[in-house]
Amino acid sequence: MTHTIIIGGGSGMGLALARTLLAQGGDVTIAGRSEDRLATAAKELERHGHGKVGTVTADMGREEDVAELFDRVGTVEHVAVTAADATGVYGPTTDVDTATARAVLDTKLLGAWLIAKHGAGRITGSITYTSGINAYRPNGSNTIMAAANGALASLAYGLALELAPVRVNVVSPGWVDTPIWDQLGMDKQAAFADLAKRLPARRVGTPDDIAQAFVSLMGNGFITGTVLHVDGGHRVT
């Protein structure tokens, strides 16, 4: 039976991944910054899954939290990182607060590096990070997030060599209907409908679409140092 830590497992894509793994009989530990959100998610997962569910409150941008996470969990087969925070990030670069930009890099990039630093020797199977379409199709209003997401690919390439035979990969979603959109103050449904007309897949993604991609990478022992694009064809439009 496998055990997976899902950082960001309290909602959205991480929660969908937890459901999928539990349905397959695996154990999961969901981690995130909100204790209340984790508790609510754990109650839901325990009702529907077959494996064991654990929770750890942790901010992956804080080294002491990441170190404590692995001290508590110990050896684990897989780590999936789906945590994201877009608060204050969108807009012209001249309008984005520098502290906000640093926080994005602390969580998205340095936090990903901290997972490798403190998980080395304790992770036996794989690490999978979450990037995003804006790394490949920036739209002029999310430049610091695009930069952080793009850097994850280079991080994964280096770690795939450094941590081998542990595998390190990245899932790069397109637009996915998750709670993060509620932070952006926009008409989500209108934006989704407009994009769906232009995507080859003719729809935006769901959390389950991304969960399936994570499971594929985690389960295939011959995939490492790879970015898997799950974007409905967004990159080619």
Rank of each mutant, 00 (worst) to 15 (best):
residue 189 Q to R: 13
residue 170 V to E: 11
residue 197 K to Y: 06
residue 158 G to M: 00
residue 55 T to A: 03
residue 62 R to A: 11
residue 57 T to F: 01
residue 74 G to K: 06
residue 224 T to C: 07
residue 5 I to Y: 07
residue 51 G to L: 10
residue 82 T to I: 06
residue 184 L to S: 09
residue 147 A to H: 05
residue 91 G to L: 08
residue 72 R to S: 14
residue 79 V to W: 01
residue 88 G to M: 01
residue 234 H to N: 14
residue 22 L to W: 10
residue 133 I to Y: 04
residue 234 H to A: 15
residue 68 E to V: 13
residue 88 G to C: 00
residue 196 A to R: 11
residue 16 A to Y: 05
residue 184 L to K: 08
residue 143 T to V: 15
residue 97 D to A: 10
residue 55 T to R: 09
residue 35 E to Y: 00
residue 201 A to C: 03
residue 224 T to G: 08
residue 23 A to F: 09
residue 18 A to E: 06
residue 148 A to I: 06
residue 99 A to G: 15
residue 93 T to I: 14
residue 228 L to N: 05
residue 14 G to V: 06
residue 192 F to G: 08
residue 64 E to C: 14
residue 168 V to T: 04
residue 180 I to N: 10
residue 195 L to Y: 02
residue 50 H to P: 00
residue 66 V to N: 11
residue 134 N to P: 03
residue 229 H to A: 11
residue 33 R to K: 12
residue 47 R to G: 10
residue 75 T to V: 15
residue 36 D to R: 10
residue 181 W to H: 14
residue 218 M to P: 09
residue 208 D to F: 00
residue 83 A to E: 00
residue 41 A to E: 01
residue 23 A to V: 11
residue 160 A to S: 15
residue 90 Y to S: 10
residue 214 F to Y: 15
residue 82 T to N: 04
residue 171 V to C: 01
residue 174 G to K: 01
residue 191 A to Q: 13
residue 102 R to D: 15
residue 237 T to K: 10
residue 234 H to V: 04
residue 50 H to E: 14
residue 34 S to V: 03
residue 96 V to K: 07
residue 76 V to G: 11
residue 28 V to F: 12
residue 215 V to W: 01
residue 173 P to R: 01
residue 106 D to G: 11
residue 127 I to P: 02
residue 174 G to T: 05
residue 219 G to F: 03
residue 193 A to R: 14
residue 214 F to E: 09
residue 82 T to R: 00
residue 231 D to P: 06
residue 170 V to L: 10
residue 70 F to W: 12
residue 71 D to G: 07
residue 218 M to G: 07
residue 178 T to F: 00
residue 144 I to V: 15
residue 52 K to Q: 13
residue 14 G to I: 03
residue 184 L to P: 07
residue 31 A to P: 04
residue 90 Y to R: 11
residue 237 T to C: 09
residue 131 S to M: 03
residue 228 L to D: 04
residue 78 H to L: 02
residue 230 V to I: 11
residue 180 I to K: 09
residue 193 A to F: 04
residue 190 A to L: 11
residue 14 G to Y: 07
residue 86 A to L: 15
residue 77 E to D: 15
residue 89 V to C: 12
residue 152 L to W: 11
residue 56 V to P: 01
residue 90 Y to I: 08
residue 174 G to H: 09
residue 116 A to W: 02
residue 167 R to I: 02
residue 122 R to P: 02
residue 34 S to M: 06
residue 216 S to Q: 05
residue 112 A to G: 15
residue 224 T to E: 08
residue 146 A to E: 03
residue 178 T to A: 00
residue 173 P to T: 04
residue 178 T to M: 03
residue 225 G to D: 03
residue 32 G to F: 05
residue 206 T to S: 15
residue 117 K to P: 12
residue 170 V to K: 07
residue 171 V to K: 04
residue 20 T to C: 13
residue 20 T to P: 04
residue 109 L to S: 08
residue 60 M to R: 13
residue 207 P to E: 06
residue 89 V to F: 10
residue 10 G to M: 08
residue 11 S to G: 06
residue 215 V to D: 04
residue 212 Q to K: 15
residue 120 A to C: 10
residue 141 S to K: 14
residue 214 F to L: 06
residue 157 Y to Q: 03
residue 192 F to A: 11
residue 128 T to R: 06
residue 44 E to I: 02
residue 138 P to Q: 07
